[in-house]
């Protein structure tokens, strides 16, 4: 059997691997079935394929546990009817009792995590497409509109990172895709973190401490001196980083 050829031990049927992935969260703001149903229908009209077979985490962090009966099963049913695949429910611990009947995996809340990036990419699809205007926003891009300060890190794990504010010295930007900075870029910027050499760093005021594209770093900026404080586009050319005026 060819499948077994790569395995040293014939009795190995699987391996458990730890992996990170970005998922969309459907964050309930109400438990009113009718409201949820209406919004889901609206959503489906705007982007007919968006919800179809979409894996989501259902978050109950923003709604209070009802005192009497809990209609969570009806809500789950409604979501599934619209095509969503709920793979886990995230809620505070006191919800667990009421979630027992759902038979869906339970996740504790994220609030205990420290130094969470300022933008939450997993919330983005819903928040942005829920806006009644049918804007074609790419769900994988992360947009940050407040300053990224020293000691902070922002990641766009799936796409481009767009920062509309200053990036301080000591701050760090990471993106699978391109990085665009519309304020001064004084911190570190790492584009193409998964190895895509066709990515770039675009900024209106170049003053970075470090730039990297697909693993190739540059901390000594003397070769780029003539672009200091100016608009610049940094990209990979073979093994080298190159710069051009914007």
């Amino acid at each position: 059997m060819t499948a077994n050829a790569s395995h040293p031990n014939n009795s190995t049927g699987f391996q458990l691997k730890r992996s990170r992935l970005t998922l969309t969260t459907l964050e309930l703001l109400s438990l009113e079935l009718e409201i949820i149903r209406l919004q889901l229908t609206e959503q489906a009209k705007l982007a007919p394929n968006l919800l179809h077979d979409m894996p989501v985490i259902l978050s109950l962090e923003k709604v209070a546990l009802p005192e009497k009966t809990c209609n969570i099963n009806a809500i789950i049913h409604e979501c599934e009817r619209m095509g969503l695949r709920i793979i886990a429910i995230r809620a505070q611990a006191h919800w667990r009792h009421c979630l027992k009947t759902t038979e869906i995996a339970y996740l504790p809340t994220l609030s205990t995590q420290s130094d969470e990036p300022i933008s939450k990419p997993q919330h983005q699809t819903i928040e942005q497409t829920a806006n009644s205007e049918p804007k074609p926003i790419h769900p994988k891009h992360v947009v940050v509109n407040k300053p990224v300060r020293s000691g902070q890190q922002v990641i766009a794990p799936e796409g481009d990172l767009i920062v509309l504010a200053p990036v301080s010295a000591g701050a760090e930007l990471l993106a699978k895709g391109n990085i665009h900075v519309y304020g001064p870029l004084r911190g570190r910027a790492l584009a193409g973190i998964e190895g895509n050499t066709n990515t770039g760093i675009f900024c209106l005021q170049f003053a970075a401490e470090l730039v990297a594209i697909a693993g190739h770093y540059m901390t000594e900026m003397t070769p780029f001196q003539s672009f200091w404080q100016k608009g610049a586009h940094i990209f990979r050319e073979g093994e080298n980083l190159q710069i051009l005026p914007l």
Partner: peptide, 19 residues
């Protein structure tokens, strides 16, 4: 100035208002 910048980041992520 660098330390102030750091504190500003903390204010915007670790205060009650941020949380």
């Amino acid at each position: 100035v660098r330390d102030s910048d750091r504190i500003l980041g903390i204010l915007q992520s670790k205060s009650v208002r941020a949380e």
